[in-house]
Simulated assay, not measured.
Amino acid sequence: MAVLCRVRGRSSIRSWLYTIATNVCLTASKPRPIRMLPSGLTGPYAGPDRPPIPVAAAEVSWLEPLPDAWIAPPADDPAAVAVDRESLRLALIASLQHLTSGQRAILLLRDVLAFSAAETAQILGTTTAAVKSGLQRARARLDELELEPAELLEPTDQRARALLNGYIAAFERSDAGLLEQVLRSDATLEATPFRDWQAGRVTCIHILDAYVLGTPGEWRMLATTANGQPAAAVYRRDADGMLRADGVVVLTATATGVSHVVKFHDPALVATFGFADVLTH
C-alpha cells in the first residue's frame, strides 16, 4: 500500500481505485445504449388483456438492481463514507435512465460516494467547474422528473418491512387479496425483459393474479435490499419440484403503501445478491 501511495502522490488509494473503475465504466458504456426500465420506453399498457410479451435481448439494454451491500460501508468502519439512501435511490433508479454517462458519473461520485468536487474532477480528468456544472444539470434533470424521495421509507423502517413481508406472503400463498393491502391505488408494476408495464392497483393485481401468482408454494422469496429499497431474491418451483432462482424484485415503499414494483427476471442476479441458485428447503 505504501508503494501505491507513493505512486499516486497525494491521491488517496480510494480516489485512485475509483479513477480506474470510473474510467473503465465510462469507456465500456460509450458504444452501448442507455440502460432502461420498461417505463422509460413507453406509457403504461392499456391494450387487450394478455400476458406481458418479452422484448428481444438485442432490442433493449435493461437496468439491473444493485445490492446495497456493494455500496454501504461496514458499520464499524469509521473512515468509510456514509451512503445516503435517498441519493442512492435517485442515482440508481432514475438517473441511469435519464442522464448522460458523464452526468451519471458525476452524480454517483458526488452525491452517492461523497467525493468533493475537486476529487471528482481529478477522477474524471476534468475541471472542478465542469464537475459543478455537470452536477447542477444532473440535479435539474432529476427535478424535472418530479421524483418525491422524501415520502420513501428506509428499508429498515418497520412499515417498509411489513410491506415487503406482505408482498412476499401474497406470492408464496398465491393470494391476490394480500396485494390489496400492500399496493397503493396508484401503484405501478414493471418487469424486465417485458416492454409492457401496468399502472393502477386494480390493473397490477389483475396481471399478477391472471398470469404470475400461480398456485400456493410455487414461489419463494428471501428478503434483501437493493438500490436503497426493500427487495427480495425470487425463486420459482420447476417441474421437478425444485425452487430455482428466478430473479430479484425491488419495491418502492411509502407510508401509504408500495408505489412501484420492479421485477428483474434474471436468475443470475440471485447469486449476485449472495443467495443460492437452488433452495433445498
Score class of each variant (00 low, 15 high):
1 M>R: 04
2 A>H: 06
2 A>R: 09
3 V>C: 00
4 L>A: 08
4 L>F: 08
4 L>M: 10
7 V>C: 01
10 R>C: 00
13 I>N: 00
13 I>E: 01
13 I>W: 01
14 R>Q: 03
15 S>V: 00
18 Y>G: 00
23 N>Q: 10
25 C>W: 04
27 T>S: 05
27 T>N: 01
28 A>Q: 01
28 A>P: 00
29 S>H: 04
31 P>G: 11
31 P>T: 03
32 R>L: 15
33 P>H: 09
35 R>K: 12
38 P>H: 10
39 S>H: 13
39 S>E: 14
41 L>D: 12
44 P>N: 08
45 Y>V: 03
48 P>W: 08
49 D>V: 13
52 P>G: 07
55 V>P: 06
59 E>F: 09
59 E>A: 15
62 W>R: 09
64 E>S: 09
67 P>I: 03
72 A>W: 05
73 P>F: 10
75 A>Q: 14
75 A>C: 12
76 D>R: 13
79 A>I: 10
79 A>P: 00
81 V>P: 02
83 V>F: 05
86 E>D: 09
86 E>K: 14
91 A>W: 03
92 L>A: 14
92 L>D: 05
93 I>L: 11
93 I>Y: 02
95 S>I: 02
96 L>W: 10
98 H>M: 12
99 L>V: 03
99 L>M: 06
102 G>D: 01
104 R>V: 02
110 R>Y: 07
112 V>M: 07
114 A>K: 09
115 F>C: 01
116 S>V: 07
118 A>L: 08
122 Q>W: 01
122 Q>F: 01
122 Q>I: 00
123 I>L: 00
125 G>V: 00
125 G>R: 01
128 T>Y: 01
129 A>C: 08
129 A>W: 06
133 S>R: 15
135 L>V: 03
135 L>Y: 02
137 R>E: 08
140 A>M: 06
141 R>H: 11
143 D>P: 03
146 E>A: 14
148 E>V: 13
150 A>Q: 13
151 E>C: 10
151 E>L: 08
153 L>G: 07
155 P>V: 07
155 P>E: 05
155 P>D: 07
157 D>M: 06
161 R>S: 14
161 R>L: 15
162 A>T: 11
163 L>E: 05
167 Y>F: 15
169 A>W: 02
172 E>H: 08
177 G>K: 13
178 L>I: 12
181 Q>P: 02
182 V>L: 11
183 L>V: 11
186 D>K: 04
190 E>T: 03
192 T>S: 15
197 W>L: 12
198 Q>R: 13
201 R>E: 13
202 V>F: 08
203 T>M: 05
212 V>E: 12
215 T>S: 14
216 P>E: 11
219 W>I: 10
221 M>C: 09
221 M>P: 07
224 T>D: 03
227 N>Q: 07
229 Q>T: 04
229 Q>K: 10
231 A>H: 04
236 R>D: 04
238 D>R: 08
239 A>P: 02
244 R>C: 08
245 A>P: 02
248 V>C: 06
251 L>A: 09
252 T>K: 14
252 T>S: 15
254 T>M: 11
255 A>S: 15
258 V>P: 02
258 V>I: 14
259 S>R: 13
262 V>I: 15
262 V>W: 09
264 F>S: 05
265 H>M: 09
266 D>G: 06
267 P>Y: 05
268 A>K: 09
270 V>K: 05
272 T>S: 06
276 A>N: 03
278 V>E: 12
279 L>K: 05
